[in-house]
């Protein structure tokens, strides 16, 4: 059964609502950001909902005060506002004290394509993974969002959950949890090249995969559900079956998913060619929507296909070189 007609934020908040009915110490704070599921929460559990004002710095430290009093707190807003806007609060109060507060951001990458760079989240992976004590989850469909939500109350911790704004096609079936334990899932097995991606871009890479199949290139696809920490041993064992690794993200390359992967591969002494694909260092002030923006920064499906083909060809060249 398809579950892709539910917005990620509603999947998430619905789960939190169900838990909040049972756990009176669960508090949900919003900096004036909503969701259909949150309307129900606010209506049914007003005692456990706190409108923090459009005051993200305030929201973070209030949540810290609640957490220090034994509460399980969630702070909720669009990604740029719940991360960059109050970054130092998140660092000082949540990271250094390692409090069980879940930072829930909506609008990964160009989700808010019609809104412009104030609303884009093209640096959140980099900035949030720089923090100590943090776990970062990047669910790319309904089932993984559902499991991410469950994790926040079954294993409370300082976490950042990055959600997409839009409906997402299913990656996993209902009840499936193979991505959960290690945070890494090889969702498509392939040969020669494996693509590591996360969130919204999983579907784009899979579309590229279909196109490439017709041209005789069978790529593997890894969904990185957990961006931090990355399970290096498992990642190594998966990618070692391939001849090259490509990372694809809707993020600036500095410090993003690709950076994280290359760090892990270096530490694990995996000597494979790696190509990072992401957004060039530029803020687009252009109309036209997400697909159009992807074309501009060359992370649309066709560009991904081209980049994989180039990478594939370069690997063939490498092989000739190394066989001499």
């Amino acid at each position: 059964m398809s579950t892709q007609n539910i917005l990620p934020r509603d999947v998430f908040v619905n789960q939190i609502y169900e838990e909040a009915l049972k756990n009176k110490d669960l508090y949900f704070l919003s900096a004036d950001f909503g969701a259909q599921a949150l309307d129900k929460f606010r209506d049914q559990l007003p005692h456990q909902f706190i409108h923090a004002g459009i005051s993200e710095q305030n929201m973070v430290d209030i949540a810290a005060g609640l957490a220090l009093n034994g509460k399980l707190a969630y702070i909720y807003a669009m990604i740029p506002f719940v991360t960059f806007r109050c970054y130092e609060q998140v660092k000082v109060a949540l990271a250094t004290m390692n409090l069980p507060v879940t930072v829930v951001g909506v609008g990964s990458g160009y989700s808010y394509d019609d809104a412009g760079p104030t609303h884009y989240a093209t640096e959140d992976i980099s900035c949030m993974r720089a923090l100590g004590n943090i776990e970062i989850l990047s669910p790319g469909d309904t089932q993984s969002t559902f499991e991410a939500a469950k994790l926040t109350f079954t294993k409370p911790a300082f976490r950042y959950i990055r959600l997409d704004r839009k409906f997402l096609p299913d990656i996993y079936q209902k009840g499936e949890t193979r991505f959960l334990k290690d945070g890494i899932c090889e969702i498509d097995k392939g040969e020669e090249i494996c693509i590591i991606t996360t969130g919204y871009m999983v579907q784009k890479v899979r579309q590229a995969k279909e196109i490439l199949l017709k041209e005789g290139i069978q790529i593997g696809v890894i969904d990185l559900f957990r961006l931090k920490p990355i399970q290096g041993t498992l990642l190594s064992s998966i990618v070692s079956r391939y001849k090259g690794v490509m990372t694809v993200e809707e993020q600036f390359l500095s410090g993003g998913l690709g950076s994280a992967i290359t760090e892990v591969l270096a530490d694990e002494r995996i000597l494979l060619p790696v190509k990072r694909v992401g957004i060039n260092d530029h803020y687009y002030l252009d109309n036209g929507g997400r697909e159009y923006l992807h074309k501009l920064c060359k992370i649309d499906v066709q560009s991904i296909v081209e980049k994989i083909k180039q990478f594939h060809a370069s690997l063939a060249g490498n092989r000739v070189l190394s066989s001499k």
């Binding site: 973070v60 430290d61 810290a64 609640l66 957490a67 609060q89 000082v92």
Partner: peptide, 24 residues
């Protein structure tokens, strides 16, 4: 009660304490 050193944090965290007590 809480880490302080960067100004402005303790005040808001204290408000969080007050809110927790109220709600409890």
């Amino acid at each position: 009660e809480a880490i302080c050193g960067s100004l402005g944090h303790g005040f808001t965290i204290a408000a969080g304490y007050a809110l927790a007590a109220k709600r409890d």
